[in-house]
Design a protein around this nucleic acid. Structure first.
Lengths: 348, 348
DNA sequence: CTGTTAGCGCTTTCAT
DNA sequence: ATGAAAGCGCTAACAG
């Protein structure tokens, strides 16, 4: 059984003053060493470092930040942790942050816009050096404030509503377009579409992609074939049920995310219909379980982990060089063909 | 387009001094109001409160904590975010913490014991007021230090290795016992068991529960029918494959978590076998996707969200009253019967 | 290169 | 019930 940081004095907190005494320098010098200031004689630096080691010194984060330095924390706002979707993004963020020794403060907004704004206000008051916002709800509410304050942040998975701010997303429009096109080329003419929360840019883009593909192939859009959901599984169930109740139900259903696609599958099966024999289902995201369910879900893959990693990199760059040019990056989506789609039963 | 905290002075940070001036009191009084001190005349309090409101005052966390108080942050150490399992626990923790306005600092150890110890050492130095450790790896390494320092923490999902410290877990032994018993009563005699990481208490307990049930029903244990996994999906695949290669393969497979159960399902299907017709599969955890896959997974449910919530409550209580008696709570598991198990094909 | 001196925004005695 | 004053541990000019 090993012991942790097995130093002599366990109670009294070791401060830079203690280190300074131990090393025989002023505490300012210790601070310099702490901050990698160039103006320290290597020999002195070594002495300080060894004193730190000996005393088991750990810098006090709050004090550093209060005094005007960095907190070495960045804040992460996510809507929730439920679906694995966010988990993938966080994995990427985390990988990048760990690499640079930066801590992550996590806030779950539970999809409440007011909470989101509140958190942002709070965080930007010094808790963190920068902000990562996943699937922001009403960014317009606070982006202005953040920008004005020159507070570094980057949006993840939000196709802006015209605002010019750092963001990384995926090619939602393109992804939806290609998926719809795939369905059409399979022979489908009546394709039900279940949207996400339409206040989210990505949801709008996906719907737009679907519509564009329909237009390209001269398929008139049937309003009955678009069901407005909110990215939750029950929406998928309800949407598919509504489609199936139609006198002329679709031969394929394209859900704006995998979770809703799974809900749709459930509804379809509950009617005694089979996938993909009777009806095809296509999702969006490619969350881990998409490949685990049967039939394995054909879906549009978003490079979630990569998006997270990239966003973290962008933020870190912004932190180092605030004058950085604003970048908006869209990572490519990719249609992953698995088992849930096939040509419609009766060729028309 | 609304504006956030639409106050007059956007740049200069509002401090208690500003509030004090605005309210015509000393800044000490403002501090008292901030801390709900009893010794403030209601009228004065009201005046200060309204001044805060007017100025859009937000207390600076670092300053409060530096000045001797709490950080109002608690640290959460988790192995990873991959499976939804952890997500559920966090959801519970988060619910409780949000209620009390406490922030969450998230650390992902990626199942590395050394990282874990490191994080703990760092965090216990003032970053956070308390620690929540999910599925701790080598708690023996640091529990001693933590206890000695009187640093509040609670373990989640770790059946102690004899140490007396606050913890919340589930009845892993019981859960595995009942699940195995269910399989036996269904008529199964050859039941393959895929273990979790055997350095984790919960994994050991589940295996023990399985064995105990076998013993109760006088079924001799076949070493070939126990495959050692690590809680990851590929282990389930490999384990099931190994079982299926046996001259006398099992008629049911009990995996120590749902993710491995899904891996097992994959392997089974890849052999052209059907679930549950040819072979039954049973999991553990009841993660969200367990009910979404087909066949829906019969599994042992852990009250994940509740565990998280309870652990947070315990920690918060500990924070308020450090003299608290050490508690170890085990929440009951529950067998959720769905579609992945049925009696074995040929009654022997 | 290194030491001195002010604060950062707040909590907390100690007076009043 | 309220004010004054002394730090919490550290960074950041400013001197030397």
């Amino acid at each position: 059984m090993k012991t942790l940081t097995n130093t002599s004095v366990p109670n009294h907190k070791v401060t830079i003053v203690d280190v300074a005494n131990e090393a025989g320098v002023s505490f300012a010098t210790v601070s310099r060493v702490l901050n990698n200031s160039a103006h320290v004689k290597p020999e002195t630096r070594a002495r300080v470092l060894s004193a730190m080691e000996r005393l088991g010194f750990v810098a006090n984060r709050q004090a550093r930040s209060l005094a005007g330095g960095k907190t070495n924390c960045i804040g992460l706002l996510v809507p929730d942790l439920g679906t694995g979707y966010i988990g993938e993004i966080i994995r990427g963020i985390d990988a990048e942050l760990t690499l640079r020794g930066i801590d992550l403060i996590l806030y779950t907004t539970h999809r409440t816009a007011s909470k989101e704004a509140n958190y942002v206000a709070n965080l930007a008051t010094g808790m963190v050096d920068g902000l990562l916002l996943v699937l922001p709800r009403n960014p317009t509410d606070y982006i202005g404030t953040l920008t004005r304050r020159n507070f570094p942040f980057v949006l993840i998975d939000h196709q802006g509503t015209g605002q010019d701010c750092p963001a990384v997303g995926a090619t939602n429009w393109q992804g939806a377009y290609e998926a719809t096109e795939y369905l059409i080329k399979l022979g489908h003419r009546r394709i039900g579409f279940i949207t996400g929360s339409m206040d989210l840019g990505c949801a709008q883009d996906r719907l737009a992609g679907y519509r564009a593909a329909l237009r390209t192939y001269h398929i008139p859009e049937d309003p009955n074939l678009v069901y407005e959901g909110t990215f939750f599984q029950p929406d998928g169930y309800a949407g598919a049920s509504a489609f199936l109740d139609l006198p002329d139900p679709p031969t394929a259903i394209f859900a704006s995310n995998d979770v809703m696609a799974m809900g749709a599958m459930d509804a379809i099966r509950n009617r005694g219909l089979r996938i993909p024999d009777d009806i095809s289902v296509l999702g969006f995201d490619d969350i881990p379980q998409a490949s685990l369910i049967r039939p394995a879900l054909t879906t549009v893959q978003q490079p979630l982990e990569k998006m997270g990693r990239l966003a973290a990199q962008m933020l870190l760059d912004l932190l180092e060089n605030p004058a950085q040019k604003v970048e908006r990056i869209e990572l490519p989506t990719k249609l992953i063909i698995r088992e849930s789609c096939q040509p419609p039963r009766q060729a028309d």
